[in-house]
Amino acid sequence: MSASNKLPADLAAFQNSYAELFGSVPPLPAAKFEFSGDIDPEALRLAEQLRAHAFYSDIFDTKTTQLMLFGMLLVLGAGAARFHAIAARRTGATWEELHKVAELASAVVALGPLNNGSAILNELRTNEAKGN
């Protein structure tokens, strides 16, 4: 936001939810609130409603959600994984839980090409044996 503009109360509450979860607003969301809040606050509002709906549910507790997000972002190689590890710790995750998530992410990344490649090759071999 430009210095003269302030976020509407609902967007400020969304922004504050980052600080509550991470201890501060990370750089990417901070830039999102500054720029999108200025340019298209309704788009920002819709994005934050989706985030809130997904991140805070009655299905998973916040710690579990943060552990899953940590793993998903590790698989993507996204720097935001660090912030979700922080949030997981702040919501009670142990070092062992976080490490297990890193192990799972590593296995997913390492085994994915072998699983997919084997399925493709098996199908090709089967088709070749049939003369296709």
Rank of each mutant, 00 (worst) to 15 (best):
82 R>E: 15
56 Y>N: 02
117 G>I: 00
35 F>K: 11
87 A>S: 05
4 S>H: 08
85 A>N: 02
7 L>M: 02
44 L>I: 01
130 K>M: 15
2 S>Q: 04
100 K>H: 07
10 D>Q: 12
130 K>W: 10
74 L>E: 14
26 P>G: 00
46 L>A: 10
46 L>V: 10
22 F>D: 03
123 E>A: 15
118 S>W: 12
25 V>S: 12
102 A>H: 01
24 S>D: 15
16 N>H: 13
85 A>V: 03
37 G>N: 00
17 S>D: 15
71 G>T: 13
56 Y>K: 12
117 G>L: 02
70 F>P: 02
66 Q>W: 07
98 L>G: 09
108 V>S: 04
73 L>D: 08
27 P>Y: 02
20 E>D: 15
116 N>T: 12
32 K>Q: 14
64 T>S: 09
117 G>T: 06
89 R>C: 04
95 W>R: 13
92 G>P: 11
33 F>D: 06
50 L>R: 05
77 G>Y: 01
55 F>I: 03
57 S>W: 05
86 I>F: 06
32 K>S: 14
27 P>T: 05
123 E>F: 10
20 E>R: 10
33 F>K: 07
66 Q>A: 12
78 A>S: 14
47 A>W: 01
11 L>C: 00
118 S>K: 13
21 L>K: 08
80 A>N: 14
56 Y>G: 04
115 N>R: 06
7 L>Q: 04
88 A>I: 03
87 A>H: 05
41 P>F: 00
122 N>W: 09
48 E>I: 05
72 M>E: 12
118 S>I: 08
98 L>V: 03
95 W>A: 15
39 I>L: 07
106 S>I: 05
19 A>G: 13
100 K>E: 13
48 E>L: 04
96 E>S: 09
41 P>I: 06
31 A>D: 08
1 M>H: 03
77 G>E: 08
32 K>N: 15
88 A>Q: 06
53 H>G: 07
99 H>D: 11
32 K>E: 12
28 L>T: 14
76 L>N: 11
16 N>C: 06
5 N>F: 03
36 S>F: 13
85 A>Q: 13
61 D>L: 01
81 A>L: 08
50 L>T: 00
118 S>T: 14
19 A>L: 04
22 F>A: 07
95 W>S: 10
57 S>K: 07
59 I>E: 06
122 N>I: 09
100 K>P: 02
95 W>D: 15
78 A>Q: 13
126 T>G: 09
14 F>A: 14
119 A>R: 13
